[in-house]
Amino acid sequence: MGAPARALPAGARLTPLLLARPRRALTLVERSVRVYKTKWIYIVSGFFEPLFYLLSINVGLSHLVGSVELGGHPVSYARFVAPGLLATSAMNGSILDTTYNFFFKLKIAKTFQSVIATPLGVADITFGEVGWAVVRGSIYSVGFLVVMAAFGLVTSPWAVLDLPATMLVALCFASLGIAASSYMRTWQDLSAVSLAVLPFFLFSGTFYPLSVYPHPVALVIGLTPLYQGVVLCRGLTNGIVDPGLLWHAALLVALSLAGLAIAARRLGRLLTP
């Protein structure tokens, strides 16, 4: 291997992340792009799901719900829900690759075992896989943002920051996804992942405000990753911006870092025992 095993700085022993070489990680992103170039249909069709949800809300649910309180004044239900779906599409875009596809590459195709024989290290692999997931999540988000704009649901110049916000969401779920998947041993374990994603989608304040919940429950949900993305995107898209949003962004960053650290350590243990 390229890195001299002896002369490791103290920090790197804690987490292999500090040994990452960004350019090498990019080669892994490149590889994923090449794989998906022929399977673009998967990416395109994955984009339809939030679009259908948006349509059904606009056409069907908005009449039943009326308006929702947001930042002091009522907004249409569509303007309330759409940013939540935006954050969700970033999550969906990144989670698939970092769970099922990642598990497949790790255990069955043993892609990483052959990669680790090259100068690439565990940190490079981690960043490479997460990087691709962020790219994919961002593609979904940009697409959805365009659709939202077409529906007239983007009402503020702050919405430009939706892009980095969704990248942050994608990053968070990618790192948590890889961290979780690295503990899985069989395909049955993996279905626990989709079991976790649905509650996030349903209960993170996308479809109704957290005020519906009893206070302790609302507190707990207030700390979960998708909720941060929902609040961020909702504020930015509708122009209701206050410094409180930074707290949500910071939480996403913290969760991402934790996920990355766990993922790198686990991968290190799995690939270089």
Binding site: L61, V65, V68, L202, F203, F207, Y208
Partner: peptide, 26 residues
């Protein structure tokens, strides 16, 4: 999970959470 848990989750989230908004509006 798909057979039993998902439907119950949808029922709770949409029926109760969203339902609150809908029932009030109607």
């Amino acid at each position: 999970e798909m057979n039993f848990i998902y439907p119950v989750l949808y029922l709770s989230a949409m029926g109760i959470g969203l339902g609150g908004l809908v029932n009030r509006h109607l």
